[in-house]
Design a binder for these strands. Structure first.
Length: 575
DNA sequence: AATTCGTCCTGC
DNA sequence: TCAGGCAGGACGAATT
């Protein structure tokens, strides 16, 4: 993320099994071009990486980096043309984006996403139709378009930070996928057995789950009741006199009937079995690692998405199965109340920043006198960021508006822009999508003289919906940028910590993830680092330093801290 | 038979 | 423990 003086870019492209390479100097002029066989290219890259550490320019990290990682090569910096294209194409900070928008081939999904769907027909051809263009020619053309767009941008500095952070994220996502999250299958199995009961050898539901199902059927006085089909269960409930409209937990719990408690418990357990039961364990945990697929920029706001294994929805209950290797530890850190802190900084709201000083932002709001209790503060803040209008949250938001007018003006403005069909932009320059054609049509129709009342009502509702989206977009998106900066800086700090081969007698060979501290998990505002025990202190310090760096990188000297909740988890030695 | 839709629950 | 934002995954039901 730091600026460099003379090191330029090296652009990579594929050419029928070989690698085509163009070296650009710091001003972007091409100084050298060559074609190398794949095997030679890996060595050449490794040599250039250690000699000059250029910013590697490639079409798509998912198409290039896994192979390099498998060969033991890690790169410090890249420019991911696919991800950067998406940002620049839509950013309101880019004044001339016509050329980028015309280059629609770069709107393609990542090679990896498409490859998963078509492994059966994978012909391993560079010219395949999946992913963005992979030739050197196309990469150079797109890179030129992107630099052109940046040159004319109204706040190129911020956009450059965003592109660097997004690209670093692309590297980190592949590295974390390759490294995996240390996962103790035996511990997971023990949790399942403890919660769900014993699996019958002949198959079928585990004992506790089956007992619960029988109890539910007994209480319903319906021996054949189907508990796994929503409509059928609903009918059974109605027959038993429980007049719910849905089978969701919150509605069930409003009723008083002996079937409710076991039914809710049944649904909870059956959910665990279906989502993260033994078959999940078998499918996703190999050799003590959970290998999720992360998708940087997979969410419109810039948050990461994931694909496969539900990596971002791991139930808290299973966190105990995340265990460091023997002789290693996990450093687990999350940011307390990231989004409201980001909002305070974006809005330069000194009063909200003052409330955020110290550990707990919600207590700070209570201390300022805006609301009476911590839970009210939390409800009010969430309501402010999500656009709540009703209930307790809707009643509390006005109090917040009086206490923190600057912060509230920022989200209120974002909502108004969205309602009017406009586009909002995060701190570093990621813009929200434009409203759909259908949305625009409806708003237009509703303003015409002969518009029906129904149209007007619907138009107003859609407008409010979009307002809530853009209101949340600026905060969630900027929080995602903060988190990316945190990750990217941390990765750099971890890279310069010693490998255990230098302090220990471990073998030098093998994947780099077996020798040094590495990121193992990331979830919006939480990171997990897997590290040799000897480096726990250094890693913890790096995690904190990076958080504070991220705050300064985005918000300069605005007085706001981002306190971490940091834990070290070490696997107990077995005697 | 295959695909899409709806519901519910998990995470932030 | 709902309202109010962003997601993914499972599974049954509806649709083609």
């Amino acid at each position: 993320m730091t600026s460099t003086v003379s090191v330029g870019w090296i652009v990579l492209g594929r050419m029928s099994g070989d690698i085509a390479i163009a070296v650009l100097d710091a001003t972007g002029d091409e100084t050298e071009r060559m074609v190398l066989a794949k095997a030679d290219a890996v060595q050449w890259l490794e040599e250039r990486e250690s000699a000059v550490a250029p910013r590697w320019v490639w079409s798509d990290a998912t198409a290039w980096y896994p192979e390099l990682l498998a060969a033991g090569v890690r790169l410090a910096r890249c420019h991911d043309l696919r991800l950067c294209h998406a940002i620049l194409r839509d950013s309101t900070l880019v004044t001339a984006a016509d050329d980028l928008r015309a280059a629609t081939a770069w709107d393609a999904a990542s090679a990896q996403t498409t490859a998963q769907a078509s492994t059966l027909f994978d012909l391993d051809e560079g010219s395949s139709t999946t992913g963005p263009p992979s030739s050197l020619h196309e990469a150079l053309a797109e890179f030129a378009r992107q630099r052109q767009a940046l040159a004319g941008a109204s706040d190129a500095g911020r956009l450059r930070l965003l592109l660097a952070a997004e690209s670093a994220g692309a590297l980190i996502a592949e590295e974390m996928r390759a490294a995996g999250l240390p996962w103790d299958a035996a511990a997971h199995d023990a949790i399942l057995t403890e919660t769900l009961g014993i699996r019958p050898p002949g198959g079928g539901p585990p004992t506790r789950l089956r007992e619960l199902a029988e109890r539910v059927r007994r209480e319903l006085d319906d021996p054949a009741a189907s508990l796994d089909s929503q409509p059928k269960l609903l009918r059974s409930l109605h027959r038993a006199g429980i007049l719910v409209e849905s089978t969701s937990r919150w509605e069930l719990s409003e009723h008083d009937h002996p079937v409710i408690a076991p039914l809710i418990e049944y649904k909870k357990l059956s959910r665990l079995l279906a989502a993260n039961g033994w078959s999940w364990l078998e499918e996703w945990v190999k050799d003590g690692r959970f290998h999720p697929v992360y998708i940087p920029g997979g969410v419109v706001t810039g948050r990461w998405a994931s694909s496969g294994g539900g990596a971002l929805q791991l139930p808290r209950q299973l966190r105990a199965a995340v265990r460091a290797d023997p002789g290693w530890a996990l450093v687990i850190a999350d940011v307390a109340q990231l989004e409201p802190r980001v909002l305070a900084a974006m809005a330069r709201d000194d009063r909200l920043a003052a409330a955020a000083r110290g550990r707990d932002l919600y207590e700070g709001i209570v201390d300022s006198g805006a609301v009476a209790t911590r839970s009210q503060a939390k409800t009010a803040i969430l309501g402010a960021m999500y656009g709540a209008t009703t209930g307790e949250s809707g009643r509390l938001v006005p109090k917040l508006r009086r206490a923190y007018p600057q912060a509230m003006a920022l989200v209120d403005d974002a909502a108004r822009v969205g309602e009017e069909g406009g586009v909002v932009t995060t701190w570093l320059g990621r813009s929200s999508p434009s409203p759909s054609g259908g949305w625009r049509d409806l708003q237009l129709r509703a303003t015409e003289a002969e518009a029906s009342g129904a149209d007007e009502t619907r138009a107003r509702r859609w407008a409010r919906d979009r307002g809530r989206f853009t209101r949340n977009f600026v905060v969630q998106g900027t929080a995602a940028e903060w988190a990316l900066a945190w990750l990217a800086d941390l990765r750099g700090r971890l890279a310069v910590l010693p490998q255990i081969s230098e302090t220990d007698s471990a073998p030098r060979s093998g994947p780099v993830f077996q020798r040094s501290p590495h990121l193992a998990f990331f979830l919006h505002d939480e990171i997990v680092v897997h590290t040799p025990l000897a480096l726990v202190e250094e890693v913890s310090e790096a995690v904190r330093a990076s958080a504070s760096f991220a705050g300064r990188l985005l918000f300069g000297d605005f007085p706001l801290d981002f306190p971490l909740d940091l834990k070290v988890a070490q696997t107990a030695e077995k005697a």
